[in-house]
Amino acid sequence: MTRTQPDRGPLPGTGTGAHTSPLLHVRDLRVEFRTRDGVATAVDGVSFAVEAGETLAVLGESGSGKSVTAQAVMGILDSPPGRVTGGRILFDGRDLLKVSAEERRSVRGARMAMIFQDALSALNPVVSVGRQLGEMFQVHRGASRKDAWAKAVELMERVRIPAARARAGDYPHQFSGGMRQRIMIAMALALEPELIIADEPTTALDVTVQAQVMDLLADLQSEYRMGLILITHDLGVVADVADRIAVMYAGRIVETAPVGDLYRAPAHPYTRGLLDSIPRLDQKGQQLNAVKGLPPSLLSVPPGCSFHPRCPAVRPVCHADEPPLYEAGAGRASACHFWKELLDDECAE
């Protein structure tokens, strides 16, 4: 699902690496967790690519493997019990799974950064936010304390925190939820990374604040031409900001598509089920078409297509044959044996 590489332009700090490959290219990633009850395959052969300036949304419910994928790419997987057991993570042409720990650390934070869901627990409660932001410059850029502080204030202004100079000395708990999330964004942006991974960045926020934060993130992304991986369970948030979507289910990507195509005509029964099951603000329906059953336990993923026990269009072949990710038209892929019929149905409707 790589696309033609758009002109990235000269970015400070880049320049090495092949110019024809995407910014991030994950190939066949596998992550396992060893638990008391057996081995759980949290990520099972996931491949995707992100270009500079592009937003890829990874959509999934709890346990689908979306956050674990992000942690593996960032190199912050809890290990043990988690372990990357296969695949490649090519960042700017280099396989991050093969580089030394020290090299990995120099990439993390400086060239790829992460925004977490819960800002209050991601920030250090006993260090002022100005110090925490400034630390990025002291550690990675060798800035003096005074310069780092000035840079921190500048960053806080950039993420539109009112009275940034006065508030840089405040501690995380003195900020509201939305403001804390801005500080997280500021911290991720500090060293002008090429890739940002945002794991449910607005899930803990109220809708009016969510709108502010998403707007800010989108603005900054286009300003810096960063690649953005947005991990979420919210089909609504994604519709607005993503270029492409990858839908995950039980550790696998089951569908990828440009955002408009996916909502217009989903090519996988799970995606379709999700879209049909959410109540919509602009519609008053009588009965929601719920997806029956529950997502499977990762300790015992059903054989064949992992969605088959819940699928309304299941056929005998689905019980035994695991569907590969079929190419399903321009820039689209679906892991359903019957994606073509599904799309034809939707076009006929």
């Binding site: 809708v207 009016t208 089909l235 607005d240 408009g260 217009r264 879209l275 603000l281 602009d282």
Partner: peptide, 15 residues
């Protein structure tokens, strides 16, 4: 009005 306008709708065309 602000609250309703801030709710994302899962449909890029409607959005």
């Amino acid at each position: 009005q602000a609250l309703l306008s801030a709710v994302p709708v899962p449909d890029p065309a409607a959005e």
